[in-house]
Structures are given as structure tokens and as C-alpha cells.
Computed example of a mutant assay.
Amino acid sequence: MSDAGEQREREAAKLTRHEGLGGLEMLAARYRDHAYALHTHPTWVFGVVVAGVEKLRIGSRSHFAPAGSIIIVNPEEPHDGEKGAPAGWAYRTCYPDAALMAEIAEDLELPGLPMFSGGIVEVPELARAFVRAHRLAGQALEQEAAMLAVLRDLVRRFGDGRHRDRASDGGETARRFRLYGELIAADLSAGFDLAHLAAAAGVTRFQVIRDFHRAAGMTPGQYLRDRRVRAASALMKTGMPLAEIAAATGFADQSHLTRVFKAIKGLSPGAWRAAA
């Protein structure tokens, strides 16, 4: 069945990992009604829409990505996604980490890790190469070589190094934001409110809201949810039961964890854990 035909079927998502690429996560999904909540990744995101249209926000910009579009998201850059047409969209994505991107940067003799400013790019032959490499699941050596080649080409053509993590900039906003992050990371199961964060930083609740917007492009609640899901993802690689993971990371119960996890990851905790 063609990608367009597959996309018209029920929603589905499958995550695989390639150990030869440092455990590179690769997602193949089709969505009709699913909508991603605003979130971030510690990795890069590269994807190609193979059918339909995705509507998404990357940073402060909104985009429509039709079939054939290449999606590029930098680490820690907030983004979401939903259908941009009634039938939804299907796409294939991967999430290379810093070690893999550093290897590519070294081969290209770049001075540092590559960053991107495009968000959505249209290069049909590169999009086709990405999809071909992605489809080689089960052919480990062939997929390793093909994916390395296409990622290298993406970096060579579009990596420009101009992106900067807003939270790494100097100044009082960055200092306070680091404090908020440390407080949240110290106990994800705790209940947080704006007054607690404001008192710790010696500012008003309104300033806390502004700090999160400027440093992370998210509300405090969105940031907290994002970090809880990241922590839950890490614990899912262990044998800890999902109910215990939910309690440890601040979710009301396993059902709450499942709802929020799927809104950010695009698949259930069980499906994600099976791939892990």
C-alpha cells in the first residue's frame, strides 16, 4: 500500500531504534486526529511528511508542511504538531543525539555542533533519500550507511550554527531560569506553583511567567509537563512499573501519565517501552 493509502487508514505509530547509530530513535506514524502538545527534545528532530499536511509550530513560527517537506527542529526548541488538512498526515522522523551529530560535524570539519534556522525545507531528492533510509528497518548495515549519508547531507546543506539556546544567554533571565529548572528537576513529583518559584528567585509571579516565555518559549506548566515526560521516558527503560513511574514523576496516576505521554510522544508508554 502507498504512503497515501496507509495514511487514510487508522492512526498508527511505530518506534524503532538503531543501535549502530547510537540507539537512534526512528518513528513512522500516521495521524488523523492526534495533536502533539508543545514539547521539546534533548536531541535534534529530522522528519519528512510522506502524505497529507502537518500544521506545526517550531519556536515562535507557525508552518504548514505538505507531503515532501523536511522538518528540522533543534534541541530544546519547543514545537507541536497537528493535522493541516482533514485527512491528517503521515511522516517519518528520527532523533539524532549530540554524539551522532558531533561525529557528522567532525567529518565535515565544522567548528561545533550544527544548528539550523530553516524549520521547514523543500528538497525533493533529499526527502526521498531520507524516506528510503528510514524504510530500511531490518537491514542494519544498509540503514546505518544510508541514514548517516542523508543526515550528513542535511547538515552540510542546512546546518548554519546561527541558532542559540535562549536559556544559555547571559543575564538575569537566564540565571533565574536555571534556578527554576534546578528546583523542578530536584523533585518532579512535587507540586509546584508560581508563588514557590517566584519566592525562590525573589521576583513576582508575573516575572516567572515572562522568564519561561523568554528562556524556553513555553509556559511554566508546559515546561514542567515536558520535564516530567522526559523523566518518565528514562525510567521506562528500566523495569519500573508504569504506576510507580507516574508517581515518581508527578503524574496523578498511570492513566494521567498515559494521556500526557501520548500527547507528547505520539504513542503510548507501552509501545514506547517495547521499542526501548
Rank of each mutant, 00 (worst) to 15 (best):
R32M: 07
K55D: 01
L27P: 07
E109H: 11
S60N: 13
F46D: 00
P96M: 07
E82F: 03
R30W: 12
A29M: 14
V53G: 04
A37D: 01
P114D: 02
G22C: 14
I70T: 12
G23C: 06
L38K: 12
P114W: 01
M115Y: 15
N74V: 01
L110A: 00
P114R: 00
W89A: 08
G112Y: 11
P42D: 06
V123G: 10
P78V: 11
G22M: 06
A37V: 01
E9N: 10
R92S: 06
A37T: 00
L56N: 00
H18W: 08
A90V: 04
A29K: 09
E106V: 09
L100N: 02
L100F: 13
H34E: 00
A99R: 15
L38S: 06
E103H: 08
A99E: 15
M101N: 02
G112A: 15
A51T: 11
A98L: 04
I120L: 15
E25T: 10
A28F: 13
K83A: 14
E54K: 14
A99Q: 15
G47Y: 09
G112Q: 12
P86N: 13
E19Y: 05
I104F: 06
K14S: 09
L108E: 00
Q7N: 10
L15F: 05
L21A: 04
G81M: 03
L21P: 00
E77K: 09
R57S: 05
V45I: 05
M115A: 06
A99D: 15
A102Q: 14
A29W: 05
D97W: 03
R17C: 07
L38E: 02
Y36T: 01
